[in-house]
Design a protein around this nucleic acid. Structure first.
Lengths: 171, 171
DNA sequence: ACCCATTCATTGGCCGACCAAGGTAAAGTT
DNA sequence: AACTTTACCTTGGTCGGCCAATGAATGGGT
């Protein structure tokens, strides 16, 4: 009866093999899922689905950009971005127009109405962050960020999904 | 030139607002996504999609169970599990039969062929975990697990998605 | 000028995951 | 026994994500 991690204990008090064989992997999945749900709730008030807010934030930051830049910034699949934009366009958050300088490219920008959400979204993210980190003191927060960055580095490396990795890693 | 976190620096060397307003939230999304991709690659060899392996592991652990137990153990939406099982059934990893003791319930179990994958999947998870944690010393790993558990607790609490939360939390 | 490789974006198909709504069967109430 | 609530699962729809394949325009090489 080691009463190990609280989360598993709550359910069946028998740790799934998954948790034994890969505690961090397991934790990452679970945290990500819960975080996504929490984000969904917070974003419901601003008529956005989780994931879309990052795209909008980038637009609010940088104005009219072409899709490629969004793909690179968000590190998503092109098709994902296309579909997100189609939906965001339909909900009126985004406008697309052909790039006059390059006839195969498309320029994307946030609509004026969407800019009204800007503050709300940032507040939402702020409270989400605070909620996520409740009970962690500053040192713990810093450490968590540092460790997550390291993990991201690891996953990024072999995944080879980060296109432009010049060895800037250091402690 | 502060050369802050390596990951952002690689892309545009301008931190998105999202990273400023919620560094951990941002990191969690990114790590989760990369982790999922990595899992997908590792699982490709065993004919499973990321997410399915957890379900299978539970089945291998516990034998024939009813769907409700899977839902509780994996903490997923019922409909999600239903659809996963339909696909797993079609690919021959899983078998379903009505529960004789309860005519609305269904018993699920892993097929014999799927059991051949058992070891492969655990190895896959092991290597995924190792890949994720490469370069972190034991103390860092422990700390990461601890912090993630704390975050999970936080997110779990308000999300109220963990059904059976008796306060078993402690260091 | 021509051809070929690259880049930009889209489509279609798939999976995990959610919610909402529905149908059936088992428990609980009166 | 009849009624109501609860539990179990399914269906249909939506979104974020991926991959593979496609079409259109740009750009480099010869």
């Amino acid at each position: 009866m080691t009463r190990a991690t609280p989360a598993e204990d709550a359910c069946t008090n028998a740790l799934p093999t998954a948790a034994l064989g890969g505690p961090v992997s397991h934790a990452v999945s679970r945290v990500a899922r819960l975080h996504r749900i929490a984000a969904g709730k917070v974003l419901k008030g601003v008529d956005l689905y989780p994931g879309q807010e990052l795209l909008m934030m980038h637009l609010w930051d940088r104005g009219a950009v072409r899709q490629t830049e969004l793909i690179r910034a968000l590190e998503l699949d092109p098709s994902t971005v296309t579909k997100m934009l189609q939906r965001l366009e339909q909900t009126g958050h985004v406008r697309r127009r052909p790039d006059p300088a390059d006839r195969r490219a498309v320029l994307v920008e946030a609509t004026d109405e969407s800019c009204a959400l800007h503050t709300a979204v940032e507040n939402a993210w702020g409270s989400l962050e605070e909620h996520t980190l409740a009970g962690l003191d500053p040192a713990e927060r810093t450490e968590l960020v540092r460790l997550l960055a390291k993990v991201e580095e690891n996953l990024c490396r072999e995944t080879e999904d980060c296109p432009d990795r010049r060895g800037a890693a250091s402690g």
